[in-house]
Amino acid sequence: MSPGKTASLQLPSFLHGTYRSVQQKVKREGLRCAEQYRKEGAFPSPRQLLEVPLGEVVVVQGVVDIQHERPVWRLYMVSEVLRDVWEALDWEDSSSVRDAYEASFLETAWGALFFTLARMGAVSAERTARRLEAVLRFWDPLECARYLFKKPGAAQTLEELMVDSCGWAMDAWSPELEGPVRARLESAAKRMERATREDCLEAILRQMPRALAAGHDLKHRQVLADPAFQRERLTMLDTPSFERVSGACTSELLEKLYDWDHELGLQ
């Protein structure tokens, strides 16, 4: 954190506690949010925000939250608020509700980080740019905490977290840059924001080898690895399907590779 800055990170109080207590608090918050959304078409801000002490750990992914009994910040459980909102609204229009919820809370530090990591909906260039820009806006306060993301015992700095979670965006969209993560993310976000379909295509093709490497059980590797094959298949995608891969996110590309692998197997 830059010296002289007084930024501190604030998180909603309903995200702190043991797993069970957070679950209960989040359920109440979900009902409250659903109520207001139903009446006014908008989500309420959290009633109480608490300052996170410098260096305190925030759990940002459920799969590494192995110790449910420890009281800790459980940012990943924002997904349960959304779930309770959906439930209260009887699962109608879940995409619109989700997008509205995200739009509201991208304006907060906690929402910016949560939605950047959650990658809900289509992981498009445009949506990712918005998410990254939100994190960048709140970079200083977010630097105050440490994060549990991939490994249960190893808390990371914001920078390390962003490399782990959004490294794919930097590799795809600002590959030539070195240096501070913040700068690389800024560059990637700008490019993603104004990317044309052809720009996205180029970024995807650049990232395909990385996705292929991650798919160790793909059966038709030789065909799948051919850029001509990839380009041909990508250009055939309809708009919603292309949108899902347009950000060039590794897991989305890998999903497509498995699809194509399956289709090749059927021939």
Partner: peptide, 20 residues
């Protein structure tokens, strides 16, 4: 590690809702 997966009792409706 590069897979998008849901673990430990996330309801199907939420999984579909999140991923579209």
């Amino acid at each position: 590690p590069d897979t998008r997966a849901y673990y430990n009792k996330e309801p199907i409706a939420a999984i579909i809702g999140e991923t579209s």
